[in-house]
Design a protein around this nucleic acid. Structure first.
Lengths: 343, 343
DNA sequence: GGCAGGAACTAGAGCGCTCTAGTCACTTGC
DNA sequence: GCAAGTGACTAGAGCGCTCTAGTTCCTGCC
């Protein structure tokens, strides 16, 4: 053990390997491997001795070699957008669900400068056994190609391809609850500020149309094309102020709702007196004291659990009944919705 | 190429390797490696042919093997808390900064069920060449041990150990700006709702003390022990209401401020008429229309750039002048601070 | 014509593990 | 007393790459 740490390239003394531990303990590499993996095949006395040497040398198994040599990697790949709180919640759930099943998680971020294809490439290059895509927009065709290689579970949107699993909540119903709530409050002219091409946006749009029809409000339907960011909501709000205000509006997600509320606040539009607003996701934002956004909630913990279960079931050849699991969302009524005002 | 995808363990046809591509193109493994790595040593014609075969077979280099065989991994390990928007911003910046330098990023999340030590273990097991710890609380001693193995850069807090680099903003100054601002508005009884044991909390606490003294308000100092979560701020607010309200307060971070504002709102305390509130971080939350939190901002993009530069400089034996780089924070005045009211 | 020099390519040794197929010593059962 | 069994351990092949040290062949130059 040289203490050759001084200058130059530094730390050139490569990390200790199984070989080093084996030599130190006077046993074979294979035995050390057995001890480190905690599998049967070594006496308690030896285990203890080997562990002590490993500890002393600061030995840490090399994932690269381990993954390469093993017959399986037991790696679950997850793509997510770091700036999205919904994704973050799901990812944490995935960690928690994967560990007890003996799987490890590899995260790969999607960002402006890092398209989904890039993130997925990384997962494949690590030979993940399954991929869990959290709310990523992947072209149908590439999804099909991906599913050809490994089990794919999409979270938060319907499976865009018959070969992939999907774990999501029932978006049509979520929107339906929102419309029901607004109608019960006496609103009729209910607008949907949609999510454009964002994940599940089409479903929510559709849910809106169906719900309006069901309430005999087909004639009152009004869609504003928007998107998933605050700015999209803000622009929609400006248009509404200019072109005529509805009784209420439902946005694609909470972020969009925040943009809407911002513009309304600055323009002297009182929520909920002048107009009611409903968001979607029940993200942290929705709970903020000054916002108190009425919104549709989906259970991220359960979504994560189910996604992991799915992926593992596929890998372990268990029978998986349907391609989709759809959870029931629920409405959380807070302060941005109220009864229709006298006018 | 069998289309043996049907049932059973499925996809057992293992992914194509260099060998397969080499065979398909009628060249050696080494040559394919040269082509895939885009290094000199192959003719253009061959390059094209090899690439075509690789494409046709759906070949994807195996990171495990690549990392294992190469003399360097060029991997930068990053630990972060997924639920922290400040961390997410920094992480995205790290991706952006690492790529042009030819380094890859490995993310390792810290969560309730996944302590920092665990996250760091993962990074080590992948043989990352350097570790960038974003706002993680790692015991001084383990940090020292870690720095023994590889260059470590801590982001968002002072280096808790002489052997690690730190990239952060000048927290004492940030707090000072907040105090200056409040004093200029006429406030004297300024409380600090602190961050307890959270990263950089001690610095901010200290900055508060110094700033108060500098304004001749040493006698008005009042610290409330709190933490980094919304709930910590909320509890502090309850105590203040009970034990006596100050003119203004500065919280450890924006999350804490949100908790404070929540309790104040529910208790009929008007901000900023009755009391002014300043947060820290300028996270997304602070910009929300209904919140419009006055807060201290740090430049996450630059923090990330510098952290990567640091790590790479250490790896490539460049001279690094000081252990710490400290950026200047700045105050963003929004709606939660105002002049002292007549009473 | 002979040979240096370079471009294009290959052989083969690892990288640090896992895993199969052993070997060896020591019970155990009849 | 001996085959069979069992627990503890080892040898060695391989996982899919990279990288060093070649080899081969062409081109140009005196």
């Amino acid at each position: 053990m040289t203490t050759e740490r001084a200058s130059g390239r530094g730390r050139l003394d490569r990390p200790p390997t199984l070989e080093d531990v084996a030599a130190g303990a006077g046993v074979s590499r294979a035995l050390v491997s057995i001890v480190m993996r905690d599998v049967p095949g070594a006496s308690d006395a030896t285990r203890e001795r080997v562990r002590a040497v490993a500890e002393r040398l600061g030995y840490r198994p090399d994932s690269r070699a381990r993954l390469l040599a093993g017959r399986r990697t037991r790696l679950l790949g997850v793509t997510l957008a770091l700036n999205n709180p919904f994704h973050a919640d799901v990812a944490e759930g995935i960690y928690a669900a994967a560990e007890p099943l003996g799987y490890e998680v590899v995260l790969s971020a999607v960002a402006d400068a890092r398209p989904p294809a890039r993130a997925i490439d990384t997962l494949l290059s690590y030979r993940c056994e399954a991929a869990i895509l959290v709310g990523a927009l992947v072209p149908r065709k590439s999804l099909g190609a991906l599913a050809e290689r490994l089990p794919v579970v999409v979270v938060g949107q319907p499976a865009p391809h018959p070969a992939v699993d999907a774990v999501r909540s029932y978006d049509e119903r979520g929107i339906r609850f929102a419309v029901d709530h607004l109608v019960a409050l006496g609103h009729r002219r209910i607008v949907h500020v949609d999510g454009g091409r964002a994940p599940a946006a089409a479903l929510r749009r559709n849910g809106y149309r169906r719900a309006m029809k069901a309430h005999g409000l087909a004639g009152e339907q009004r869609l504003i094309a928007a998107g998933e960011r605050e700015e999209d909501g803000a622009e929609a709000a400006r248009r509404l102020i200019e072109e005529g205000m509805p009784d209420a509006l439902i946005t694609y997600n909470d972020r969009s709702a925040v943009g809407v509320l911002d513009v309304f606040a600055r323009s002297g539009v009182d929520v909920p007196r002048d107009v009611s607003v409903v968001g979607y996701d029940d993200s942290q934002v929705a709970r903020l004291p000054y916002l108190r956004l009425t919104t549709v909630s989906q259970d991220t913990g359960r979504l994560a659990d189910l996604a992991v279960q799915r992926a593992v079931a596929r890998l372990e050849d268990q029978v998986v009944a349907e391609r989709e699991v759809i959870l029931e969302p629920h409405l959380v009524v807070r302060g941005t919705t109220g009864p229709v005002a006298m006018r």
